[in-house]
Design a protein around this nucleic acid. Structure first.
Lengths: 189, 189
DNA sequence: GTCTATAGTGCGATAGAC
DNA sequence: GTCTATCGCACTATAGAC
């Protein structure tokens, strides 16, 4: 008998999502997830820092994608231009093929404050990354910070709409629209 | 001998903050906090949903303050004007007398991702409240959502600066400055 | 106020890949 | 042989149920 099959990481992710959908997040135990994936509880914790993290693994990729795009942007301290670059990069991470899976995952996350909490921490981390990337282009700290807050805010609102029932427009399109709404708000001041 | 002294809630809050400062958040146990406050562990959980929450109690007051201010604002669907009302209301909750305490608390929160996570959830809740309040004034949903994201972003950045070492300006002043930076970013598009 | 499930950690043993 | 993924077990503390 083999001690391990390859792909424990992916098996754990699928097992967790399925089990959360079947029994609810709180009812599902780490032992149950591990059993379904054919590993022990201890192995789960080798891959994921805690029970929630199994739904958020891969978030670093998103950050790197965005940070790299901003770093590679033409040199400018025009924060608005850099924000547009960041949003374009983020949009590429959410092609239509991923929408169905994102909806399943989103439904679970929405059902549980503890998971929403983790999602907000990931967004905060994204803000920090963007703010730093803007600052590296010479954007002043406070301006970089508020630009990052608003940009990630636009992303957040757009992502929520992207996974909403019946929505078919692309992330890029929804972000564009949200950005125009932001402009309208700020212009009025 | 008295079975309990009044003010368990406040004693628990103080005991927790002190113990977190002395031993670090993770080392401190709920039993230890309860003992220092002269109550049992069970009593701690009567007042606070979990160990983290002891540092965030009172967040609902902030939401109510803001929601009431926006609700009482002159009828308009001008999101920018309503955002200004919301920010003004928030600023009143952070007078200079509270800064020293906010710094102590902030230092603990910053030291622990689990606490930062909870802070972000509170801010998300603030966003939701503001978005709803704007919508009640007739602001369109998407516009209300991005306006709330940016407004709470401005608040977040300003609060971080308000508690920063050596900072002496008021919340109102810092928010004003952050708002101007946001304007500058969005205007440039 | 007591009792219990389970999340999460530390450490050592072991099986398989190379 | 080395290296690393997995496992087993003992343990604490949180948090909820009764």
């Amino acid at each position: 008998m083999v001690r391990w099959q390859p792909g424990a990481f992916e098996r754990l992710r699928s097992a967790a999502l399925e089990l959360f959908e079947e029994t609810g997040y709180e009812q599902a135990t780490v032992a149950g997830i591990a059993a379904r994936a054919g590993v022990t509880e201890r192995t789960f914790y080798r891959y994921f820092a805690d029970k929630r993290e199994v739904l958020f693994a891969g978030g670093e990729d998103l950050q790197r994608l965005m940070a790299d795009a901003v770093a590679a942007a033409p040199h400018t301290d025009d924060a608005a231009r850099l924000v547009a670059v960041a949003l374009d990069a983020l949009a590429t991470a959410f092609p239509d093929e991923l929408r169905a899976h994102a909806r399943r995952r989103g439904a679970v996350v929405k059902s549980q404050p503890a998971l929403l909490e983790r999602e907000m921490l990931k967004l905060e981390s994204l803000k920090a990354t963007l703010s730093t990337a803007l600052a590296k282009h010479g954007v002043a700290p406070v301006r970089a910070a508020v630009a990052a807050e608003s940009a990630v805010g636009v992303f957040h609102v757009s992502f929520a709409r992207w996974v909403a029932d019946g929505e078919e427009r692309s992330m890029a399109e929804l972000q564009q629209e949200a950005l125009e709404e932001l402009r309208a708000v700020v212009m009025w001041v």
